[in-house]
Nucleic acid binder design. Structure first.
Lengths: 142, 142
DNA sequence: GTCCTTGCAAAGTCTTTGCAACGTG
DNA sequence: CACGTTGCAAAGACTTTGCAAGGAC
């Protein structure tokens, strides 16, 4: 199932409504910034982005909106390390490639990676997800 | 290669020295608590543990010591989600099983899980590690 | 004695919250 | 108008740091 990334005001408004979120000006602005393509943003990066586009929004609203979007299934939270909490607009199952030298985070298609040997879990256990992060550095180790 | 988990004062002292860490009373106490077996502890849990054993150590020292131990390769940091930063005394390659209902975090043997399909990285890229967390819940979804 | 370590308290960072003003229907 | 939302500033959780007192060798 392909994912759609809404970019226009109208599209974002419709997406928010479809997820039970009332489309205020700030939410639509933030939605256009983060939902329009697969990407990973921190709260701070989104805040800066909004200001840069002359669509200033308070930090509180950025945090509240990200929390709301995640709760309503519009974003996933990705924790790459203790100091980097990203919100990911790509909702397809996928994995991450993290360049520890540059901090660059890229997506890997789910169907390219295969994990085998997952142990049996208790009968009532329900797997919610498998998070995979491949970390690599650019610098050669000497 | 099997890993040894030092538990006596003497063993921990030797381990610290072997890693270039001067074995002060606080460090040896904390080392005995966290290095003696494979486990995952947060800074706060270690702090509480030390107090419970009548080996009180300040929070600053707990944080500084955990940072030092990690930097010297005695511990790994594991981030399971945005609100849970653990220090893991198991240095063998392994993966994590995280029960989202109870918060329980268990280790999986590296050789049971197999990941295939890792894409080619640039020539000078060096894979530092592959972090895998399988999240599951106890509750049945109705 | 010299240098490193500790513990306290203060400062920092990131995130959430209380609340009055504001907007939307 | 009623209700939800925003923005500010304050509060919170967690972690780091400055510095004087204390400890290791």
């Amino acid at each position: 199932m392909q994912q759609h990334y809404p970019s226009s005001t109208r599209e974002v408004t419709a997406t928010l409504k479809a997820h039970g979120i009332s489309p205020t000006r700030q939410r639509v602005e933030l939605g256009r910034l983060i939902l329009s393509r697969p990407q990973h943003l921190t709260a701070d990066a989104l805040y800066d982005m909004a200001r840069a586009r002359n669509a200033p929004v308070s930090r509180a609203t950025v945090y509240n909106t990200l929390r709301l979007f995640s709760g309503q299934g519009l974003l996933n939270e990705v924790v790459i390390d203790a100091n980097a909490k990203y919100f990911d607009s790509n909702l397809q199952p996928h994995q991450h490639l993290f360049n520890t030298t540059t901090g660059e985070l890229t997506d890997l298609d789910s169907n390219k990676l295969l994990v085998t040997g997952i142990p049996k879990l208790p009968r009532n256990a329900h797997i919610e997800g498998i998070d995979i992060v491949i970390r690599y550095s650019d610098a050669a180790e000497h």
